[in-house]
Computed example of a mutant assay.
Amino acid sequence: MASKVRIVSSIRARVIIVCILLLGCGLAFGQQKKTLIGKVVPDTSENSSVNVQNISARTGTITDSIGNFQILVRPNDTLVFSAVHLKRKTVIINDSIYYGTSYIVVPMEVFVNKLREVVVQPYNLSGKLTQDLNTLKLQKDVSAEALKLPNADVKIISQSENKLHDADHGKFFYYYIIGAAINVNKILNRLSGRTKMLKERVEIDKKYQQTQDIRTSIVDSLFLNELKIPHERISDFMYFCEVDKQFQKLVSEGNQLLLWEYLLARGELYRKNNGLE
Rank of each mutant, 00 (worst) to 15 (best):
S160M: 02
Y262P: 04
F247C: 01
N68Y: 13
L259G: 15
S235Y: 06
N185M: 01
L222W: 04
K206F: 13
V73M: 11
E203P: 03
L188A: 08
S56Q: 09
L191V: 06
K34I: 06
K137D: 14
L72W: 04
G267V: 12
I62P: 04
K228R: 08
V251I: 07
Y262V: 08
V50R: 12
Q248I: 03
A180K: 02
I156L: 06
R58K: 14
Q139N: 14
E268A: 15
V119Y: 05
Q131K: 07
L115I: 02
L222K: 09
D213Y: 00
F111Q: 10
V202H: 01
P75V: 15
Q121Y: 07
L149A: 03
G38T: 12
G275F: 03
C25Y: 07
C19T: 13
K4V: 03
A2H: 11
G26E: 08
T101A: 08
L258Q: 14
G26Q: 08
K272P: 04
R201M: 09
L224W: 00
A144Y: 03
N124I: 02
S252F: 00
K4Q: 04
I156S: 06
S192H: 00
N273P: 08
K186D: 00
K140F: 02
G127S: 11
Y262T: 08
L133H: 01
K4E: 07
V73L: 10
E161L: 01
A13I: 04
K114S: 09
T59W: 02
T216R: 13
N225H: 04
V219S: 09
